[in-house]
Each structure stands twice: as C-alpha cells, then as structure tokens.
Design a binder for these strands. Structure first.
Length: 203
DNA sequence: CGTTGGATTGGCT
DNA sequence: GCCAATCCAACGC
C-alpha cells in the first residue's frame, strides 16, 4: 500500500486548528528499536492553540511544555494520570506554544506487535484513544522531541487527506475549559474514532 | 515543601 | 455509571 512521501516542515508551520483537520487520513509510521515498522491512519485529533486555557502552553514555558514552544514537526509526549502517555504534533513557528493531540487511528501495519503491547487483539482497541495509541506504538518520554520530518523513530506520510465534508467537529475530550472552541476533529462515522461528545459535520 | 487534580483507561457494580 | 490506579506538574504557602 502506497502512502506517499513524508509531510514537510511547512505542513506543520501553521495554526493547530488548520493542521489538526489536515492530519486526518495521514499515516503515522513508527520504527521500533528492533527495526519493526508500525503504521496507522489518523482518524481523530485535537488542536491546542496559543492563548488556549486548555493547552499545556497556556501558562508559559515549563520543562514539560518546552517542546511545544520549539520548532514545528516534532513530537510532544507527556505523561498523565500516573500511567499514561499522550502524543502531540508540534505546530506553528519556533517560539509559539502550539500542538495537535493525536487521539485515534486505524491500525494498518504491525498489528501483531501492537496487540502484544496492548494486551488485546481487538483491533478497535489498539489505537482508538490517545493513551492506547502511544502504548500500541511504544511511544514514551524517550520520543519526546523526536523530529517527525527527518527522524526515523516516528514520521508522518501524506496518506490520503480527508475532505472537509467528511470531517466532524466536537468539543475536546476531558477538557472543561474553553468549551466554546470545538477543536476535536474526527472522520465522520469512522469506526476507529473513540467515543466522545456529540459531533457535527462541517459545512 | 505540601496539596491537588489531570488532554485516561479498564474493571466492576 | 463509578472509581481506582499511580505519577508528577503546577501552584500556593
């Protein structure tokens, strides 16, 4: 299956609210330490913007959020709830704290390795949910800051972008502030989207 | 330095 | 539907 070329730096050098819907249909590839390759098609994202009270960048640079303020096209990985990792794609120019949370994907390649890490063979439980996906892909603190444009650990391929008419928006999951910003983007009706708030298809 | 609660998940009622 | 698991960032004193 052909997935095209890597997404270039310029793809990420835009507002997170533009990058988030544009990431749907793209393919995240992971090279495990043993050389095995995993791939999945993105179906669910969330945008976190500068000045956004829900963003880790809202209160300025901290050791944790530092990568968010760095150059675009890098991975921002954080640890939460004492046991889970979540991964983001850094957006906007160097110096701006902005990113897109990767929340869900359709497994394409390396399902056996994903199932082993996840402890289940249920395909819809492998990468549907931000912490499930990082576990399936073996993404931890060690990949925080990884360069998706030039690196080998993880990268993004063009895949097939999803047209606006097939994208639905909702409020962000688990976010109690800034509910007026409907910045969760999903492929409408896709079975690999995790359950979430009621969605509305874009016009 | 102590407290609080989180961009979650899975198991149990 | 409810809640425990389990770390640590951020904030207040």
């Amino acid at each position: 299956m052909r997935q095209g070329r890597r997404l270039p730096r310029a793809f990420f050098t835009r507002p997170s609210t533009q990058v988030a819907p544009d990431l749907l249909g793209r393919v995240l590839v992971r090279t495990l330490p043993d050389g095995k390759r995993l791939a999945a098609r993105i179906v669910e994202t969330e945008a976190y913007a500068p000045g956004d009270p829900a963003s880790h960048s809202y209160r300025g640079r901290t050791p944790r959020s530092e990568v968010m303020f760095g150059p675009p096209g890098h991975l921002y990985v954080y640890f939460t709830y004492g046991m889970h990792f979540c991964m983001n794609v850094v957006t906007e120019p160097d110096g701006v704290g902005s990113a897109v949370l990767l929340r869900g994907a359709e497994p394409l390649e390396g399902l056996d390795a994903m199932a082993e890490r996840r402890g289940t063979t249920e395909v819809r439980s492998l990468c549907s949910g931000p912490a499930r996906w990082t576990q399936a892909f073996g993404i931890t603190r060690e990949q925080d800051g990884a360069d998706l444009v030039r690196g080998r650990d993880a990268y993004l391929l063009e895949g097939e972008p999803v047209p606006g008419s097939a994208i639905a928006t909702t409020t962000r999951v688990g976010v109690t502030v800034a509910v007026e910003r409907p910045w969760r983007f999903v492929v409408a009706g896709d079975p690999f989207v995790s359950p979430g708030p009621p969605s509305r298809v874009r016009g």
